[in-house]
């Protein structure tokens, strides 16, 4: 293993900002900022629909504000393999719904709440994701 492209300062700074978002949503609205649940609830439930919708709109507006307020570009690269995209999307949708949480809900909110369920979930999805990359490589 070699360490490359490590950006600890921007990673930690961005992380504290995400933490602030989690705090505002929790102490303001009593909600956990778990994006898979917010998205799934928006699609399937009338309860809290306005809040879910506005949170996700904000999630898209955030990067746009960043683009307009700096001269920096946002580094972005995604595979153009449709089979990978479709398989990945389906598995992320099924997996996060069945496990009731994703990187934000389990990985951040759940661990911050010391939830054993979330700690187990996070360890598992990290392991299977790392093994997946180890087996198929980065496309």
């Amino acid at each position: 293993m070699n360490i490359i492209n490590f950006t600890p300062i921007s990673a930690f700074a961005g992380g504290t900002i995400i933490g602030l978002a989690v705090v505002v949503f929790f102490i303001g609205n009593g909600r956990l900022a778990g994006i898979s649940s917010i998205t799934d609830n928006l699609l399937t439930s009338k309860q809290g629909r306005g809040d879910n919708f506005l949170f996700l709109i904000g999630l898209v507006v955030g990067p746009i504000i960043f683009l307009f307020s700096t001269t920096n570009e946002i580094p972005f690269f995604i595979t153009n393999s449709l089979p990978l995209i479709i398989a990945g999307g389906l598995l992320v949708g099924i997996g996060t719904k069945v496990a009731r949480g994703c990187t934000s809900g389990h990985g951040i909110c759940g661990i911050a709440r010391s939830s054993l369920r979330s700690i187990v979930a996070t360890v598992l999805f990290m392991i299977t994701a790392i093994l997946t990359v180890a087996i198929i490589g980065i496309k």
Binding site: I94, V98, R100, L124, A129, T132
Partner: peptide, 21 residues
Amino acid sequence: ELIVGSSLFGIGWGLVGFCPG
């Protein structure tokens, strides 16, 4: 469900590098 779901999610995450947020 937590175990199977999280494991499947991780595979999908590893295929593309995208999670829901």
